[in-house]
Design a protein around this nucleic acid. Structure first.
Length: 320
DNA sequence: AAAGATGATTGAGT
DNA sequence: ACTCAATCATCTTT
């Protein structure tokens, strides 16, 4: 342990390198937090220094005590015979005592290092929110796959790359998002509206401009300037609703039909059944519309592209 | 400072 | 192996 942390290893020189290596090996997340690492390293070197000075002190004390005892024995040897074996025994006893003290020192140092590590390297303690763009990308995916928000491994990797985070973080994000969305759909309605409308508009633009079915990189072109006005979103709703009418569904190529279905379905259910008394669960629940939509099971382990969905009935429940 | 939001961890279930 | 649910620790907003 101490060796691994560079505490009991070589002196000052390679210590920081060893500490950095240990931190990187155990931290795993180590990417940009150089400032925190330097702080960590400083504390670690402090511990190392204390450890070494204490060790030196103990050694010195041990030597002093040994010579002291030796002198005593030598003095005694004038009055009574002392066998060299006895001297050896005494010395070994002294050394044993001091080595046990050293062990204690090592143990406490080890504890200090452990505390330091847990303090500095525990990911929960240095949590940083993702930047706006990353959350936008993630939300966009989430709300455009609302009927089955379980990204495949490849999708996760892609999202991770786009958002400059790890795949595990993507999984965490989706886990949190699913659970929190399901727990309180009402709280997420505005957000859902926003993203649904936006992706719907994007899709409409894409389909009207030609055949750019799937956007391979940075789909955040249009409204990412960051102004979420309710009146504005109302406008979007209207346009989307008219889009839903009947003229556009032919233009949409089947690439991301499912996401557009989600989007449209969401908007439709929004504009259609808006009543104040209802609870959030009833107002908009993809589970209610889609029998499978409750995401209870079937995380679709390997179906990245599933065009099997029949594009025949995009708007089966428009309900004029 | 309190409350809410959010990313990460943990334990259980499948 | 993956997800859910609860929880923690921190960040952000009020």
């Amino acid at each position: 342990m101490l060796l691994a942390e560079g505490v009991s290893g070589p002196e000052k020189g390679g210590g920081s390198a060893a500490a950095a290596a240990a931190a990187a090996a155990s931290g795993g997340v180590g990417a940009d937090n150089s400032a925190e690492h330097s702080d960590y390293r400083a504390k670690l070197s402090q511990i190392r220094q204390i450890y070494h000075t204490e060790l030196e002190k103990y050694e010195q004390a041990c030597n002093e005590f040994t010579t002291h005892v030796m002198n005593l024995l030598r003095e005694q040897s004038r009055t009574r015979p002392i066998s060299p074996k006895e001297i050896e025994r005494m010395v070994s006893i002294i050394h044993r005592k001091f080595s046990s003290i050293q062990m204690q020192l090592k143990q406490s140092t080890c504890e200090a290092v452990m505390i330091l590590r847990s303090r500095f390297l525990d990911a929960r303690r240095k949590r940083r929110n993702f930047n706006k763009q990353a959350t936008e990308i993630l939300n966009e995916y989430f709300y455009s796959h609302l009927s089955n928000p379980y990204p495949s491994e490849e999708a996760k990797e892609e999202l991770a790359k786009k958002c400059a985070i790890t795949v595990a973080q993507v999984s965490n994000w989706f886990g949190n998002k699913r659970i929190r969305y399901k727990k309180n759909i009402g709280k997420f309605q505005e957000e859902a509206n926003m993203y649904a409308a936006r992706t719907a508009v994007n899709a409409a633009n894409a389909s009207s401009h030609g055949s750019q079915a799937n956007s391979p990189s940075t789909p955040n072109s249009a409204g990412s300037a960051g102004s979420f006005n309710m009146s504005n979103s109302g406008d979007l709703f209207m346009s989307v609703q008219s889009l839903n009418g009947d003229s556009y569904q032919g233009a949409q190529v089947g690439a991301n039909v499912q996401s557009q279905v989600d989007t449209l379905r969401h908007v439709i259910s929004q504009t259609g059944g808006y009543s104040e008394g209802l609870t959030a669960n009833q107002m908009y629940s993809p589970q209610g519309i889609n029998a499978n939509g409750g995401w209870p099971d079937a995380p679709t382990p390997s179906s990245v592209t599933s065009p099997t969905e029949g594009p025949g009935s995009v708007h089966s429940d428009t309900s004029n």
